[in-house]
Amino acid sequence: MESTSPATSTKTGGFKGRKLTGILYSKKIAPWFFILPFLISFALFFVYPVISAMNMSFQQVLPGQVEYIGLENYEKLWNPIFWKAIVNSSKYTLYTLLILIPVPLVLAVFLNSKAMMLRNFFRSTLFIPALTSVVVAGTVFRLAFGELEGSLMNTIAVSIGFEPQRWLRREELAMFALVLLACWRWIGVNLLYFMAGLQNIPIELYESAEIDGANTWNKFSRITLPLLKPISIYVFTISIYGGYSMFTESYMLWAGNRSPNDIGLTIVGYLYRNGLEQNNLGLGSAVGIVLLLITFAITIVQLKLFGMFRKEE
């Protein structure tokens, strides 16, 4: 590559005569210029809001009148509806983890195997749902899980011998709809992650294992699984964060933040309801802080768990 220099090229070297030129060429100042956008954005749109959320969670915030009320917001959170939101979010996270880690992992191993045909075609096809917005996905699932006898899920239910159901009005069925929607959108994405992880495993490992007489199961459990650990931790972590911060899926399935008996209410849904719909920023912020604590606690436990495994290696 040819690097055409600017007009000042004749005055290079340790030239420090003029201040401006000095600044332009300084290796001390340049990095700060480059990272300046991050510093500004981090301070204004991240640190300030995080501190402000903590602060507001101890306040009663009314227009033009802010008052510290100690732990009152947190005490108010001790109620069955918020508890329901936490349970819903936790269940959703747990179910999505139970499905969205093993299934894509096994599919990735299959897709990577020598016997597989049309590998790229299937990889792309499974990824397509991830391109749709939750709004589009939610619309389809809302229709599919409709109450009328002609709805897709009821047609399926009847054809395998069940009664037609009011899917989005019963607790377990509603959770099923939410989890199915998540699986539909995310299997292809997690599959991509695991395939990227598989590509980093050297083939030689399998070849030498074969020479030593390892069968397919040995190779999977002794080579593939351990070496997929880093990517699995990553997928695990983003799934927990995604699960606990789920909101839009529920918002779309029930056409708003209200579901019958709050069967679709999530932690973020509760934050949205209090903070924005009822304009109680203090209480809403307290919900946010509880969510922060939950995700933090889980992350620490998880790092401990995986860290302990690491020592054995």
């Binding site: 510093l39 809001p49 969510l291």
Partner: peptide
């Protein structure tokens, strides 16, 4: 430099839903 990089990583570790209310106010 390392500190700034750690801050970048910290940003990925906090769900943005937590700060939407203060962001809204801001």
């Amino acid at each position: 430099r390392n500190l700034v990089f750690v801050l970048v990583l910290v940003m990925t570790m906090i769900p943005i839903e937590i700060i939407i209310l203060p962001l809204y106010k801001l």
